[in-house]
Design a protein around this nucleic acid. Sequence first.
DNA 1: TTGAAAGCGATACCAT
DNA 2: ATGGTATCGCTTTCAA
Lengths: 343, 343
Amino acid sequence: MTVAKKITINDVALAAGVSVSTVSLVLSGKGRISHATGERVNDAIEKLGFVRNRQAVSLRGGQSGVIGLMVRDLSSPFYAELTAGLSEALEAQDRMLFLTQCGGDGARSERCLSTLLSQGVDGVIIAGGAADTGATLRELAAARGVPLLYASRASYLDDADIIRPDNMQAAQLVTEHLIRRGHQRIAWLGGRSSSLTRAERLGGYCATLLQYGLPFNSDWVIECESSQKQAAEAIGTLLRRNPTISAVLCHNNTIAMGAWFGLMRGGRQGGEGGMESYYDRQVALAAFADVPEAALDDLPVTWVTTPAREIGHTLAGRMLQRINDDEGAPRQQIIPARLVPQR
Amino acid sequence: MTVAKKITINDVALAAGVSVSTVSLVLSGKGRISHATGERVNDAIEKLGFVRNRQAVSLRGGQSGVIGLMVRDLSSPFYAELTAGLSEALEAQDRMLFLTQCGGDGARSERCLSTLLSQGVDGVIIAGGAADTGATLRELAAARGVPLLYASRASYLDDADIIRPDNMQAAQLVTEHLIRRGHQRIAWLGGRSSSLTRAERLGGYCATLLQYGLPFNSDWVIECESSQKQAAEAIGTLLRRNPTISAVLCHNNTIAMGAWFGLMRGGRQGGEGGMESYYDRQVALAAFADVPEAALDDLPVTWVTTPAREIGHTLAGRMLQRINDDEGAPRQQIIPARLVPQR
DNA sequence: TTGAAAGCGATACCAT
DNA sequence: ATGGTATCGCTTTCAA
């Protein structure tokens, strides 16, 4: 493959019959350039197909126009959606995204950040993970004067600039919705007790129940892996033991689907005492969803969605602020969830 | 925020009492450096927390260590998974990913590529989309001597270096599986007739049927939006009109889920003539899946999965080849699908 | 309004 | 085995 000689501002300057300084001024729109000269330079740029070398710009001290993103795992719908939103918003600002997957690993996170910095990013966003090595990472970034932003599903970092979903509000929203629909006995299904997100949501659920003078029964809060099979079994057991439960709040969409299958099966089997009763009574399902609204499963379920894409947009906006005028005060931005009532 | 002065090789050289050339040689492991000097330099690097500026390297003519990725839409599970795999494999090679979302838009694609090139990427991968502007894009990349690789869900580019899933084989695989399980009358549900992926899959399905001497009936191939509701209705209509059908092949997981609901509902409603018959006969479902195996829905369905992550890995490997020794011959690499029999 | 020249950080050739 | 230095493409004073 023959590599055409790269076009530089020198070539442009030559073609336009001006100096490189002039070309640079035209490019950046600074300095007062006569209209005629501007025209000629732009023509030359057009004709030669010149594209400005950002690395040289950045080396000289300018911005690279690149934001680094460290994401725990891109294949998770939540982070994929967040990343898509972030990339979208950045591109609208003529910036780009540098992507790394840092996993949960601390040492790996440091290497990732180092790489990002060595590439001259204007800022770094850490989405999920890297909670433990927070201090080291922040020192690294601070030493380079690069703004660091966090996006997280739960609020484990109090003193950092962070954007996150409002898990508590989400739980309150959906719990209140169920109550308004007449449910008095609402159970919880799914998630591991070690999950911070779950803890926050449970807080909102619990608070709302008490606020409405309804019973909060810890036997009605069931831990469960995110597996349809396990959820289906778990809801069966739950309802058999507690036949008065009229609504179940599911930790995520997998749980919701499993729960629904569980209800179907229970109803279908029929004639087994308690089993058919709750189907006939139409136990209501509600669930938290990780996916964008358009991708919600078509189940008879009320969803609460965390607007991951919106979080991405917000991150882009906040990063722009940080880059332009570094208001040092760490700040928390909390993005509310939306309710999608059962259709 | 106080920005610590950036550490350069000059600082390292000073600290180690050697020249910058020596530091550079130690960094790149070229030239013969005495062990003692090497030690001293590395100590200084460690002590000062020096990180090499890749922009300067790249400006001087070295590699940037960055691969550009233009992806149609990151929030689609297939591309998210592909991107995750690619990023994973690249990081193992000490390279990074530059991400852009180019949508389907031609002009936008050109701008994306331009930006990538201006950032000094060592190579570019286009995943989905940008089919129409192929020629322009390739010229742009070629002019800069940057290798261009395609990843696509269907084979619309014959003369390019491309990696893609084997849609035909996938369809053959699953169709054959159904036949071996004793199904003779297999219908197709889902997808739009304008979809290239679907066309290729239909080809495999059709070929396999004929190969086994089974009837291929175009009335049994149903177009359908990827919506659970529509799929549920469509399968109902299909089976009512063609009660002899014993298996249905679904274009994706949404269709599969809808189809399954359709079967459930049909079975449940009972007593409506044809409606109950097909439920009792246990119509088998099989489906193509976009998601990784671990994320498959827990349905009584036989899945064929396109290994998106593997495609990502393969892309990384091929890109490495292209960067190192540019064997110009465009080459197609076709990644086979895997069967996940109904559990 | 425009041009000349210094310098950003790293590399590699040419000396020593 | 090391050191000096021109160079990559661009921005930015300082002069003209």
